[in-house]
Amino acid sequence: MKYDNDIPTQAGDLQAFFDGELEGPDAERMARSVEADAELRAHLGQMTLMRDLVGRSMEMRAAEVPRARFEQIWDEIDRTISEDARSVEAPASFWQRVWSAIRPFRVPAFAAVAAAAVAVVVLRSGDAPPVNQEPEVASVPRSAEPAPPDAKVAPGPASIPAPAIAESFPSPRAADAEIHGIEFGGKQGRISHTGVVTVLYVEEDAATQKSERSL
């Protein structure tokens, strides 16, 4: 294998061997060298360890992303590809084609219209009423504004009445659970520790998920 000339051949060959880039007699020769040379074996071990470490460190970061973030991303992907499909299905109307055709002229045209509008306003302002004239629409005093609904707690009617419960429970304590043993029934699952609540996700068969993306 040909390398740039700033690395020694044996180190380059060993690296290529490790990366599975050597073939045939070259690979066999390097395998024999590795078998005979403890230092080469140690070097291979170091490269293997490094590969494992890099993989695991990134997996560790990936595991920290809440499932909900990926769900949000899926929703965006789903929306985008739905729009793609719609744009393919629905040919552009006459006006859409005209709109596209004048694309290069839109900005200067709008600028001209806006400039004309400003000019009209400035010219008409000479006939403006005296400044102490009452405005046509008085602002509503702040105290008279309707109270905004509580943004945090919806007072509205729940579609399903709240069931009664015999005993009142204290508010849940923010805590993660510790899983001692787990067995998923066929399909895989996932555990998410948030520091406030531990969430375990399980999935039923595909058939029961049919309505999943009607969300």
Binding site: M1, Y3, D6, I7, G12, Q15
Partner: peptide
């Protein structure tokens, strides 16, 4: 590919 080899090595 040679550049990749070298870059990966370093």
């Amino acid at each position: 590919k040679g550049t990749i080899m070298s870059r990966l090595f370093h």
